[in-house]
Amino acid sequence: MRRWTRFWDRREPPTALALARLLVGAVLLVDFAQIIGYGLVDVIFAAPPAGLAVGKPLVAHWWGAAAGGRTFAVAFAALALFTAGAFTRLAGLTFALASGQLSMLCPDADRGIDALLRVVVAVLALSGSHARWSLDALVRRALGRPFPALVPAWPRYLLYLQVVWLYFSAAHTKADPSWGPLGGFSALGYVLSDPHYARFAPGWVSSVYPLTQLGTAATIVFEWGAPLLLLFHWWHVTPERPGRLRRWSNRFRLRFVYIATGAAFHLAIAATLRLGIFPFGVLALYPLLFHPDELRAAARRLRLARDPTPVAASDPAWGRDSSSSA
């Protein structure tokens, strides 16, 4: 119990949480901008006969016919503030609740990625994601009361578990035989040929059909193997402990192989399927799979690759080292 408590009490720089806040916010803002750009606010969120909002959540009882437009405006404003890191906690929680109401107004227009990012924003709102790269942080510094350099790590750990569960849960629901050997691993071939989702007119898949079969098998392995990421991570941060599997996992960098595979899958489906913000929304969570020190080291390597001039050991933009390396 003490170990459990110590684990969830860890602190670290807010880098990963802040980056996730910016990326998730940006993805959602693009989606909301699309709704506005297509003139769909009064279509999706207005009740029939004018619109498609067949649900009757709380806001419909409060605001009647104006519920859709007002709730959308509240959600959009809250999202913009959350992304900019202004009144972040209130803005994030407001967005999560307003988005939930929008979902209930028109359930069919609310997809899995919207529900996922709603939960993510709620958790980020309760985290120290606004302690860096935010208006809140700017104001606090100007007032002489900057945020602490280290923030609680538990929100990142919780969202890390959320990503793992997302994939593992998706594996459970893939009951169709086409996802397995009995169906010839034909699932991806069928999905890529679905006129409603395929980015390109069906037919091109035949030229890469064996690859789609490999991709189908790899998807199943990837999703069922999601909990292994936790094990790979544990082995990565405890290399001094004994164990052949630990050594083997660290030698072949299985943790990074798994994460890179996930990123590749999402980029591939973004290129070949019209899934909207789904692949980008999930990729926006990937910084949470890394400790802030790892992100800082990666940024430093990128900078050195672009400009080999020696840089200061500690870069204030990415924060100082934390005591934990998980």
Partner: peptide, 23 residues
């Protein structure tokens, strides 16, 4: 769960059929 309107049961193309619709 109702306020945030979400579930922890996630699915991505659970059914991959050779028959599709085309609007």
């Amino acid at each position: 769960f109702r306020a945030l309107d979400f579930s922890q049961r996630w699915s991505l193309f659970p059914v991959a059929d050779k028959r599709h619709y085309r609007m």
